[in-house]
Design a protein around this nucleic acid. Structure first.
Lengths: 286, 286
DNA sequence: AGATATCTCTGACTAAGGTCAGAGAATGGA
DNA sequence: TCCATTCTCTGACCTTAGTCAGAGATATCT
């Protein structure tokens, strides 16, 4: 059975048999959408804007759902002191009780589902689901162009600089902020997992772009994400009208150097005066 | 992470990211429910009763959905010649075209989903999903009491007899139909995967029941299904007021004998005149 | 300071997705 | 042959889930 056939087969099995886990929220006297919202707010509360994104709801619709929860005494909605356009939803004591009930229902259903399995089978299932979970997350990472001032992009760049500082023998000083270039950000669940940019070389090397600040979250390394980011950056450079890319790197970043080699990059002579650079590479995009 | 936690985590990941596979039916100008029904009818057609079970719909609602498909010229509903209360739905030429379109959309979505993965990752995902699929199916097998005349039960008994005939050196003759006893049938997707019965011994052995016709589909062996069936039959015998069970078997059924031993059965002397029996076992239910 | 964008809320509107009770035809079992 | 059951269909009714346009308050950019 090929990849998509297996995925589709599993999808059928899944929606028929585990799909009910979702509907465990039914039968609580509240419609599914309302229960889902209640559960999503959670014991710690959540911003209305954030809920809108997480559940993919229309803002007017969400307002009404929240008002229903408020009327039932489960949720309080208050102004966000940090930004008075925004509002924050938190559970009341009754709301927390209802939340726990939902959580418990869901837990019970999950237990009932694995109950007929032997201990060994359960372990195998857990293992298979962990693998599938990781790969599905990897497959659905979102890659998008961002301005380098985007808060999530800034966070990603910060983690990149911090790692350089940790790994370079003499540390690393990013100098003053440099926002030149076009940047790609990969996120999973809203958190940055990879980052990188392309910028035009300002000197006489026309048609040549430089790849800069390539970074992949430690937890995601070895999952092909770096190679994917590199491919996307090359495609971006091509769209921007370049037909060659260059990059520099430091000798301590061995896994990065290996990846550049695998991706078809060739070593070249120093083309800049970056004091941290120890190796320079290029690749033709034609 | 324990079993239920992993299951619930996966459930979240899955519904958020692959749930869209389901909604691939949207955007075809028809509401989701109608498209799902169209897809379920399939190129070979389907009985209305069967559709009702598979999709879990109210009969009135289903009638209306079918009428809509009929009005759109996608489906014809006709009387079932075998039972004129029932009706059969089949796709028209236009309906088959619409079905292929849905199938293709679903295929495309699946492809787009695995596209960002490397070949190795895809193989791992397919593997993990195959394992999860098998185990989820195993976990959701339905076990229920059936009269021995139930068509599915008859089919299961037939496969049991056929196997005995294949494996016994001198073949096997079931003799005239014997419907004494209470039977359990395990089904997956409506097809029999395990079968077995309990009957009171008619002679002087009061309080003793016999387990008979224990059978597990070849494809499902080694999945703990036999042991589960045995446990359920013992529980059934207990409910029927017995406190000891006995059974007979043939020496060629080695894996069955091993399973009885694992389940705590002890060999005893011949207690019947079954010409095929070569070994006899018992177990106390107290 | 002014323009622009973001966020929430309101009102008006709609389709989708059901549920329920009962009728009528056909079938199966005693 | 009669009775209970099964299956489909109809009519009446309802909630859920959602869309859209625009107003008003606040924040951000230049």
């Amino acid at each position: 059975m090929d990849d998509t056939a297996m995925l589709r087969r599993f999808n059928r099995t899944y929606t028929q048999r585990i799909g009910v886990l979702e509907e465990s929220f039914l039968g609580t006297g509240r419609p599914l959408g309302v229960s889902r919202l209640l559960f999503e707010i959670g014991p710690d509360g959540a911003g209305v804007r954030e809920l809108r994104d997480r559940l993919g709801l229309d803002s007017g619709y969400l307002t009404r759902l929240l008002r229903r929860l408020d009327r039932d005494g489960l949720v309080r909605v208050a102004e966000d002191p940090a930004d008075r356009r925004r509002r924050l939803a938190t559970l009341t004591a009754t709301g927390r009780r209802a939340w726990r009930e939902l959580d418990q229902r869901s837990e019970e259903l999950a237990e009932r589902l694995v109950a007929p399995l032997t201990a060994r089978q359960r372990a195998r299932l857990t293992d298979a689901l962990a693998t599938a979970d990781l790969l599905v997350r990897a497959a659905t990472i979102e890659l998008r162009e961002v301005p380098p001032t985007d808060p999530t992009a800034v966070a990603a760049a910060g983690r990149y600089f911090a790692e350089l500082d940790r790994r370079f023998p003499g540390g690393f000083d990013p100098g003053r902020p440099d926002h030149a270039g076009t940047f790609l950000l990969a996120t999973s669940d809203g958190r940055p997992v990879a980052y990188g940019g392309v910028r035009e070389l300002d000197d006489d090397l026309l048609g040549v772009a430089e790849i800069k600040r390539m970074w992949v979250d430690e937890a995601w390394r070895g999952a092909g994400l770096g190679a994917r980011m590199l491919r996307e950056l090359e495609a971006l450079a091509r769209r921007l009208g370049h037909d060659r890319v260059v990059l520099d790197t430091n000798g301590t970043l061995t896994e990065a150097i290996a990846m550049y080699a695998r991706a078809g990059y060739r070593p070249i002579a120093r083309y800049n005066d970056n004091p941290y650079a120890e190796a320079w590479f290029e690749k033709d995009l034609s």
